[in-house]
């Protein structure tokens, strides 16, 4: 087979190269003596001093190191797998979800949950034409999300139109939304 023939040629070539490399190199018998003479001559003349590097070079190296470390540390601050449970731009994998809350006495309403990093400033609801009703539309991937509304920046209120969360770790009233 051609492949086997190629392998045979390659092995033979390799063997020849190895044999050549292993062959002892014959040196002029006077080489050792000449090398020792040269070493003694250099020793008598004093060691060659390395070129003096200016102090600023050390500073620059340190600064560069620090800068690199800062950059590395920044690149280490990676959001870990946040794709699955955040509000995302609409695409084939997302579903539009409209949240709605009747809260007539409120001046502002926001929602926090597993889909927006629990950030009170991330997802404000807007008032609708219906008096006292607030709404927002999210694009969510399939999954299960805990969330709650923040009323006027100081009061938590769960969404009465979705199931109550089975338990709340931190005491706030919580709803749970399932996106299929």
């Amino acid at each position: 087979m051609p492949v086997e023939r190629d392998d045979g040629i390659r092995d033979e070539l390799l063997q020849r190269v190895v044999t050549e490399l292993r062959r002892p190199v014959r040196l002029d018998p006077s080489v050792d003596a000449r090398a020792l003479r040269e070493i003694r001559r250099l020793g008598a003349a004093g060691r060659p001093r390395p070129a003096q590097r200016p102090l600023w070079l050390a500073g620059a190296a340190l600064a560069a190191s620090l800068l690199l470390a800062v950059l590395l540390r920044s690149s280490g601050d990676i959001p870990v797998s946040r794709v699955a449970s955040t509000i995302v731009a609409p695409d084939a994998s997302t579903r539009p979800v409209r949240l709605r809350l009747a809260s007539p006495a409120s001046s502002r309403v926001a929602v926090v949950g597993d889909f927006n990093d629990w950030d009170p400033g991330a997802t404000p609801l807007r008032p609708t034409e219906e008096q006292g009703v607030w709404t927002v539309e999210l694009q969510l991937r399939p999954g299960r999300y805990h969330y709650t509304f923040l009323i006027d920046g100081r009061r938590w209120e769960r969404d009465p139109s979705e199931p109550r969360a089975n338990a709340s770790d931190f005491g706030a009233p919580m709803s749970v939304l399932t996106v299929s």
């Binding site: 870990v80 946040r82 449970s85 926090v112 990093d117 629990w118 950030d119 805990h146 770790d169 931190f170």
Partner: peptide
């Protein structure tokens, strides 16, 4: 195991003042 649910739980606690 996934880490994102853990992040969200910690952020939930932070936002709710735990």
């Amino acid at each position: 195991l996934p880490t994102e649910p853990l992040v969200q739980k910690a952020l939930e606690g932070s936002t709710l003042g735990a």
